[in-house]
């Protein structure tokens, strides 16, 4: 029974995520427009864009190989696989056992690798410049991300995301400075991974300032629809991850014989999750409106800061634990 419930939770989670991913992007865009005094597109515009793209025949250059055609589907599949690992409204989904943070990082890297190869496969200057810069950012974002994973693993004793959230939600860790540092660090990584201001501007029309958009410049039609869907999903993954780790309240516990009250818990979890997403979306919009994009070679400095914060979070943890519990601090 509980296995069936876990599967049902997973399917519901997938449906919720798929439905809300483009909507989330719509909220961010709309809020950004409002903040600078424009009317902005309707909230459902990203959904309409996806449908519009599906109804257009793609143009595929004669010189490209199968890699170019397969990359959008692979990228999208990697994002979908990643999203099954990140809990939204409930813990204990069918994939909870396998929801490892390192695997999650690997799946995000897989999606990125597919697009980088596709960008190189076009054999154009823009594809190359986007791919090369994307990898530059990845080289600095990855260590920061893994240091945060390292810190979380120290605090909770595991890299399993489900278990990490369960431990943090139980409140036994208390408030920690390391947590705050990890939050800032992870937020910077999220901005870089999702290609948002100040790292990259998703709405740019000037090719030379593009990173992610330059890489996918040759795409059109259904291929572009998949890439846009993957981008929405990536944003949603990062938002859910941030919300799950740093604001784990309201998330429903593992389905384990609660009876009908479970449905109530799930509904409440979904509502609270939606509120968290809304807050994060508004926060992102406010941040993006108030910041200018950084020069490409200033981005490693920003990500280096995230790396240092991650390092500091872990070291602070050692120091505090060394003093508090003598955790391994006997100098053996």
């Amino acid at each position: 029974m509980s296995a069936l419930l876990a599967l049902a939770a997973l399917l519901l989670h997938l449906a919720l995520m798929l439905a809300s991913a483009p909507l989330l992007l719509g909220v961010v865009r709309s809020a950004k427009a409002r903040m600078v005094g424009r009317q902005g597109p309707p909230l459902l515009q990203p959904w309409r864009d996806l449908l519009r793209l599906l109804h257009k025949q793609p143009v595929v250059a004669d010189s490209v190989s199968l890699v170019f055609r397969a990359a959008p589907a692979l990228c999208c599949a990697a994002m979908l696989a990643a999203i099954t690992l990140v809990p939204s409204f409930t813990l204990g989904m069918a994939t909870a056992q396998a929801s490892d943070l390192l695997v999650l990082a690997g799946l995000l890297a897989l999606g990125r690798a597919a697009l980088v190869l596709a960008g190189m496969d076009t054999g154009t200057a823009f594809g190359g410049i986007g791919a090369s810069r994307e990898m530059l950012f990845a080289v600095f974002a990855e260590p920061a991300l893994l240091l945060v994973v390292f810190t979380l693993a120290l605090m909770t004793g595991t890299t399993n995301l489900d278990a990490v959230i369960t431990t943090i939600a139980s409140g036994q860790l208390g408030l920690r400075i390391s947590m705050a540092l990890a939050l800032v660090s992870l937020a910077i990584v999220a901005l870089a991974e999702c290609g948002r201001v100040p790292v990259d501007n998703p709405a740019t029309h000037l090719e030379l300032t593009m990173v992610h958009e330059a890489m996918v410049l040759e795409y059109s039609g259904r291929h572009l629809a998949l890439i846009e869907a993957a981008a929405c999903l990536r944003l949603l993954i990062w938002f859910s991850l941030l919300a799950g780790i740093f604001a784990p309240f309201g998330i429903a516990p593992k389905a384990d014989g609660q009876g009908p009250i479970l449905l109530l818990l799930w509904a409440a979890g979904a509502a609270i999750w939606a509120v968290k997403m809304l807050v994060l979306a508004l926060g992102l919009a406010a941040f993006e409106t108030s910041r200018a994009k950084l020069r490409v070679f200033r981005v490693p400095e920003l990500l280096g800061m995230a790396l240092l914060l991650g390092l500091l979070a872990a070291i602070l943890l050692f120091v505090s634990q060394g003093f508090a519990h003598g955790f391994g601090g006997d100098g053996a």
Binding site: Q57, V59, L80
Partner: peptide, 21 residues
């Protein structure tokens, strides 16, 4: 994804030179 695209998207692709802006 392949099945969804087969059902709901326009099929085939047009060839041509690289756009490259």
């Amino acid at each position: 994804i392949t099945q969804l695209l087969r059902r709901h998207a326009v099929q085939g692709a047009r060839g041509g030179p690289l756009w490259d802006c």
